[in-house]
Amino acid sequence: MRTMTATEASRRFSDLLDAVEAGETITITRGNRRIAEIGPARRRTGADLDAALAGTTPPDDAFQESIAAAIALLRPYEGDPWADA
């Protein structure tokens, strides 16, 4: 794992992103303190969503009715949003 100062990371941000894209995790320091770790984004899957929702109570009928009522209040915008530009 490579370490960069905050100043170096700022000045060489493109290089930092290239390293992260290549799979490296970079530790950012400021004043000899670790302030951040930047690493590759983890690809999310349906299994991740299943795990996140495990044990969660499904929405009840009242929730569905509330959503339907909120949608019924929406009206399409009529007019030209750029007219005053």
Rank of each mutant, 00 (worst) to 15 (best):
A52V: 01
A68E: 11
M4K: 04
E78Q: 05
P59M: 03
N32R: 11
S66Y: 14
R44W: 15
D15H: 08
E65Y: 10
T29M: 06
P81L: 00
A69R: 05
I67M: 09
I71W: 04
T29C: 10
A52I: 02
A62W: 09
R44F: 15
L49S: 07
P81G: 00
D15V: 12
D48T: 03
E37S: 06
G31M: 05
L53Q: 09
E65W: 13
Y77P: 10
T5L: 04
P59N: 08
R42G: 06
L53I: 04
F63R: 11
G55D: 03
A47V: 04
E24Y: 02
T5R: 04
I71D: 06
A51F: 09
D50C: 13
R11F: 13
D80K: 00
A51S: 13
D18F: 11
A22F: 05
E8A: 11
T7Y: 13
P76Y: 02
R30L: 09
D80A: 00
D60L: 10
D15C: 08
A68N: 11
A68I: 15
T27L: 05
D18G: 14
P81Y: 00
R42Y: 09
T3V: 12
G39M: 04
T25H: 08
P81A: 00
R2Y: 11
S10A: 14
E78Y: 02
D18W: 06
R44S: 10
R2T: 09
E78N: 06
S10M: 14
W82Y: 15
A83L: 06
P40W: 04
D48Q: 03
A70E: 10
G46N: 11
A68T: 15
E78F: 04
Q64G: 15
S10E: 12
I71Y: 07
M1R: 10
G79T: 00
P59R: 07
E21F: 13
L49D: 04
E8D: 07
T45R: 04
A6L: 12
S10I: 15
D61F: 07
P58R: 02
T45I: 01
R11N: 11
E37Q: 07
G79K: 01
I28G: 01
M1L: 09
I71N: 09
E65P: 03
A83N: 05
G79R: 00
R43A: 14
S14N: 13
T57G: 13
R44V: 13
D15M: 06
L74W: 11
P81I: 00
R30S: 12
L74P: 00
A83T: 02
D84K: 00
I26T: 02
I67P: 02
P81T: 00
A51L: 09
E65N: 15
D48Y: 04
G55A: 05
P59E: 05
E24W: 01
A72R: 02
M4V: 08
S66G: 11
D18C: 10
A68C: 07
A41R: 05
I35F: 09
R34D: 12
A62M: 11
